[in-house]
């Protein structure tokens, strides 16, 4: 059966294979970027493919729903994984009831906390990278993820989420961030407070006048 292009991201193309060895699978292929130097391009695609597969596995072990990985090919910068039946959180935010919205963002925060606790930095925490299914919130796209327990990196992770809320879900940014951070703190406990302080500090850093 024919492959169908389901998403053309900035970094990778996602193909749906309805019958990959009898399964519905997503094939993620990091495409060549002609605008960047060949060596940089090759190295980035190879490393990110490998690292993504590795970290998805670790996230699952930490109790964060992620797709099952079927196959990894670093040289071709290709990964085959389970197809998640659901919708991107980004697209459903406006349709959810206010209570449901808060519940889900709390859950998102809780799962982000689980990642951090397991030493994983997602690197691209956005509502486009969370898929809502009837009973789970699945984190996808660990393409920019890394292993670290540094407070600075955790802070950046949360900062990115906040920035995403402010740019894309600006109507509800305040309440959604609050719910997200509450969930995060529930998982991380007191350690969360340091990360929150770091997040504020990152937002305050002079990005205009430092020369």
């Amino acid at each position: 059966m024919a492959l169908r292009l389901i998403a053309k991201g900035a970094e990778a193309d996602l193909w749906l294979d309805p019958d990959w060895n009898g399964r519905r699978a997503v094939i993620k292929r990091r495409v060549e970027k002609r605008y960047r130097h060949r060596e940089i391009d090759r190295e980035l695609r190879r490393l990110r493919t490998l690292r993504e597969a590795e970290i998805i596995h670790r996230a699952k072990r930490a109790g964060v729903p992620t797709p099952v990985i079927y196959q990894v090919d670093p040289e071709e910068a290709t990964m085959v994984m389970e197809h998640i039946e659901g919708r991107r959180l980004r697209d459903v935010v406006a349709e959810l009831s206010p209570e449901e919205r808060l519940r889900i963002f709390r859950m998102a925060g809780l799962q982000a906390g689980r990642l951090h606790r397991a030493g994983i930095i997602h690197g691209d925490l956005t509502t486009s990278n969370m898929i809502l299914t009837p009973n789970r919130l699945v984190f996808v796209d660990f393409g920019l993820a890394e292993l670290s327990t540094e407070e600075e990196k955790r802070g950046v992770d949360l900062h990115l989420m906040r920035r995403m809320l402010q740019s894309t879900h600006f109507q509800y940014a305040g309440e959604l961030l609050k719910a997200f951070l509450e969930g995060y703190r529930e998982e991380m406990g007191e350690e969360a407070d340091g990360v929150f302080r770091r997040m504020e500090e990152i937002a305050r850093r002079g990005r205009y006048v430092e020369r």
Binding site: K8, A10, E11, K33, Y35, R36, H37, I40, D41
Partner: peptide, 16 residues
């Protein structure tokens, strides 16, 4: 090449 590849990447992500 490194700096502009980085700029290219975030620009492309935002464009997508």
């Amino acid at each position: 090449e490194h700096a502009f590849a980085m700029l290219g990447e975030i620009t492309e992500r935002a464009l997508a």
